[in-house]
Amino acid sequence: MRTPLLSIGHEPLALDSLIAAVSDRGAATGSDGAVTSFLGLVRNHNVGRAVTHLEYEAYEALALRSFERIVTEAEARWSGVRLAIHHRIGRIDIGGASVAIAAASAHRGDAFAACRYAIERIKQIAPIWKREFFDGGDVWIEGATADPDDVAARERAERVACA
């Protein structure tokens, strides 16, 4: 079965399937010079707390649209780049992967930058929440107010991507 470029689901993530998906350019296959990838993992500690596991929740329809938006932004910034983004939801234990990204490009600089940009933007605008379970309790982690039209946030992601 062909791997979709963008997905959200309960199944464990398989980075190799994302790499295969971005590498398949149909008639243009062979034009890429680099594929970069990123895997976000569930860490056993956070701000001094001993984390036992996380639970992820998403507004799936809007999260997929947010991923599409991020891909469009990245394609506009790094011409010819091809991105795959998979996010896992539900319970994920320590060491498990919550997000996987792959970026293919003719040149490694653009592939690294687009991959970094994608994870920064996911954290800014994708409606995905995590509940942290730790020794002694649990908390919803609340970071940024999601606003795709916040130009300053987008520029921040671009600066980090190109640093």
Partner: peptide, 17 residues
């Protein structure tokens, strides 16, 4: 209509329940 708390990005420290 959906209401969305701040998302998991950034360096939030969490709201104790």
């Amino acid at each position: 209509v959906a209401f969305l708390p701040p998302v998991s990005g950034g360096e939030g420290t969490g709201i104790p329940l």
